[in-house]
Design a binder for these strands. Structure first.
Lengths: 109, 109
DNA sequence: CGAGGTATTAGACATCTGTCAAATACCTGA
DNA sequence: TCAGGTATTTGACAGATGTCTAATACCTCG
């Protein structure tokens, strides 16, 4: 990752093409109505987690489709997963979202 | 818009399908490397604005393509434009970006 | 008014994305 | 070990997105 040993990426200083791609990738992972609903549902749970089987009915899509969305979120570090027994439980990674908002925040405050 | 007379949309309370679509649309407008570079370049200008003719060479794309990206940003309220003479000048709308970060912030802090 | 510069629109095309059904993998308990 | 429930992968397909060229619109100055 380009920001591992540099200043945090921020919209308020000119983004290099490479940083722009990296930030765009994470924004894209979030920029889907289904994935936003998944994330907000997980965040809203007492336990802070939810499994695929409860998420699929929530968004009224097939399990493979939900699995696909969760995979995209995970690939971008926005959620983590843990298998426990038959189910797989997903949690949101607040730090990843924090990094995105930090990058954008510089543009507005 | 669904938030015109309701509480601000936030990731930390369960998003309705409608709010999810609205937030996703604005995130999508930002979730592109070219558009991120355009926004960061405009923000970095002393004047706070830039015209199409300087933005096209910046991202090494044709003017129609840049125009298309600017249109998408404008359609989502992220930039505004003003024609002055032959040129059209774009500025970032910080409030729009602020609304996006506010919605996400609730998820991380 | 017309020439020339700047910007956008229209149309075409390749690629990416979201979705599903079918197949496969993973796990538990009989 | 295998039957049955949960999850993911694969392969296919429609629709969205990003890009270009060509055409059009907008504006200024001789």
């Amino acid at each position: 990752m380009s920001q591992s040993c540099t200043a945090p990426v921020s919209l308020s200083t000119r983004l290099s093409a490479i940083d722009a791609v990296a930030l765009a990738d994470r924004l894209k992972a979030l920029a889907d109505p289904v994935r936003l609903q998944l994330v907000s549902y997980i965040l809203d749970q007492e336990s802070g987690e939810a499994c695929t089987c409860e998420l699929a009915p929530l968004v009224e899509l097939s399990e493979p489709t939900v699995s696909h969305h969760l995979k995209k979120l995970e690939a971008n570090g926005l959620v983590s997963k843990e298998r426990r027994g038959m189910n797989v439980y997903y949690r949101v990674e607040p730090q990843a979202i924090g990094e995105i908002t930090a990058a954008l925040n510089a543009a507005c405050c």
